[in-house]
Design a protein around this nucleic acid. Structure first.
Lengths: 119, 119
DNA sequence: TTGAATGGTTTAATTTAACGAACCATATCT
DNA sequence: AGATATGGTTCGTTAAATTAAACCATTCAA
């Protein structure tokens, strides 16, 4: 694969994980993720329970949960009026791994000291 | 390593790559990175040259370059009044890889169907 | 030493994101 | 149906990020 192909791939990677990057770049959402990861198994947590463990209002939590959900990082299960949120085991963070790996590859191929090939 | 230890590790990871996440989460900065990666070898590009390849003003480019530099993703070399910017081969994107790997590990240990251990 | 080139920074305006009060929708229970 | 619990959404406000004009600092050439 030549240089331009790799660059296009990285460009695609950026597009694919755009939502994920914005979602986990926010410290509040990182805190929410850690709260969710701290719960036993996959039963998930209700919005109210998450709110209690943060300094935020319920609407704010709801807002951040939506962003995390749109990014494919968490999932929701309805149960009556209760909504349980939990980490998506098949999380879209894999897209991030792809991005990082592709960049690593690129740098190794075209920026390493022992072999500048030029595309 | 138990569950809480892993959670603390992920918490650290988030702190460590906070700047990186914010830096590459912005589409404009992604475009700048792609421009830098597209240049032949490591001579780097001047601010003026980067400006020409974007829709931005020079101050805006300068602003974004500073953010990318603070995050350890790019480096600068001065040559007279000219400043050359280039990708940091030892880029701090490695911190991102660590984060993703740690989360993957965590999910595999505590959220996989075949073995919920509880910490 | 003047003039031109290069690019950081400051400032002010615009855009975008985050936030909570108030509100609305839905489900459950009596 | 009425009352309660739960949580999405709307709306106006506040906070933060992005942007370009204007400005300042440094280097080099004539």
């Amino acid at each position: 694969m030549n240089k331009q192909d790799q660059l296009n791939m990285i460009k695609e990677d950026f597009i694919n994980c755009q939502k994920v990057l914005l979602a986990i770049g926010d410290e509040t959402r990182q805190a929410i993720l850690l709260v969710l990861m701290g719960t036993d198994c996959q039963t998930g947590l209700r919005v109210g329970e998450i709110t209690e463990q943060t300094h935020l209002s319920r609407p704010a939590v709801s807002h951040h949960l939506k962003i995390l959900r749109d990014a494919g990082i968490i999932l929701m299960r309805k149960e009556g009026t209760k909504n349980f949120y939990y980490i998506n085991v098949r999380t879209e963070l894999g897209l991030l791994r792809t991005l990082v790996l592709d960049i690593d590859n690129f740098l190794q191929n075209f920026y390493s000291n022992d072999g500048i090939l030029e595309g």
